[in-house]
Design a protein around this nucleic acid. Structure first.
Lengths: 221, 221
DNA sequence: GGTCACAATAGTGTCAACGATCTGCGCGTG
DNA sequence: CACGCGCAGATCGTTGACACTATTGTGACC
């Protein structure tokens, strides 16, 4: 794991010493650190070429974000999100995302609508082509787009945090047989409602969509 | 921790060195630290008789909780929540608390109902007696009670965090003229819905209540 | 052969001192 | 008299060493 580009002593170094927390976050989300894997300060310090105190601070931050858990005197490890928790997270997302969708529908300007139409096409063609990876990525784009359009900083921030926590489950869900075929029209419906500047429809479509996710998650385990 | 019985000669030290973060949190919520007040590590370290590293860790935690903000190289200060932000927070609470109220109505057992009835009486008498401070505290009790009853850890945690952030505004709201007279019946309605084990009514009552809060907040500034 | 005390190891938690960075203020200059 | 410059104080951020706790392995003893 300590692959390292081998001692960045030679010139390389971290060009922009990105925040350690962000690097660890990416490693967790990217699957490099598995659930329950221990995160040893010295190792991380070595790997990211950051002082141990910085690693420590990062772990503290990630801990209160819910991405890692800290066992007293025994260090930190990647937090594993159970299916029950994943369901809870989606239940919370219902409230937050429907709020964002509503606000987004109230806020869109003509320019936004153009780009939403493009996104709609991309989704349709990803589904048509059976490209689940692309579709999964587009879903993420859509979610973020709605968050941005909503202009709701508080909800956005919480959603971003929740998304990180349940990233693993979302990924898994994306490849559930028949899942894409069901969720794609729901996503389209959300986009259409926002394009139509219909807050009620946008909220309703979002609720429907997430209810579907809850159902599938429950059936999974 | 290192403190053994002996070295604590001057008896004054914290008998139980409660988590520094918790102490700072209480100080902020208790109004001892005002918004925008600088929180200097050395001072806190001195005040709470904790090593600076512990204070530092606490500030980091509180920062990602949104209670304090950290300015790079310039330390931390108590974060001020604008009215706009307070509105956003309540908007988010709509989704979360209505979810909790719904779940609470689904979960209550007979014992819970007894204590809810008692709470209902307390609220009624606080209002009858014009005791706004008691009423404000009871509101908080009710909110927490519903969170607990919901059994929804994710929503509860987020709500707790949001409550801390907007504590100052909530407090201010409690003394808004005529506010209690309006909100008390709304609270009673929520309790009644939960007692009646009617999830839909509980959710609706919660939405109504919070919508009222949003309206007042908007009118405030 | 199984179990307990005990020592070795791994890793976190704590600390004091040092270096870096920002702020405010006095001083010189145009 | 206004404005920029630089020094001094305050405070954060970092470092390396050390103390403390949990875990694992080992050997004696039952």
């Amino acid at each position: 794991m300590t692959m390292t580009l081998t001692s960045d002593t030679d010139a390389a170094g971290p060009p922009i010493p990105r925040d350690v927390a962000q690097q660890i976050r990416e490693a967790i989300l990217g699957g490099e650190f598995a659930p329950h894997q221990r995160l040893i300060e010295a190792d991380l310090s070595d790997r990211f070429d950051a002082p141990r105190a910085a690693v420590r601070a990062a772990l503290l931050t990630l801990s209160s974000e819910g991405l890692v858990e800290r066992l007293p005197n025994r260090g930190a490890r990647v937090r594993a999100i159970s299916v029950d928790e994943a369901v809870e997270i989606v239940e919370v997302r219902v409230g937050l995302e429907s709020l964002c969708a509503r606000k987004a529908a109230e806020n869109v300007d003509d320019e936004d609508i153009v780009s939403l139409r493009a996104l709609r096409e991309d989704i349709a063609s990803a589904i048509g082509g059976g490209d689940l990876v692309a579709y999964s990525r587009l879903n993420q784009d859509l979610d973020r787009r709605l968050r941005d359009l909503s202009g709701h900083a508080t909800a956005s921030q919480l959603l971003e945090r929740l998304r990180a926590q349940s990233a693993r489950h979302q990924f898994r869900l994306a490849f559930h047989p028949g899942r894409a075929a069901q969720s794609a029209p729901e996503h389209i419906a959300i986009i259409d409602a926002v394009i139509a500047r219909d807050p009620d429809a946008a909220e309703a479509a979002t609720r429907t969509h997430l209810a579907g996710i809850v159902a599938v998650l429950r059936s999974l385990d």
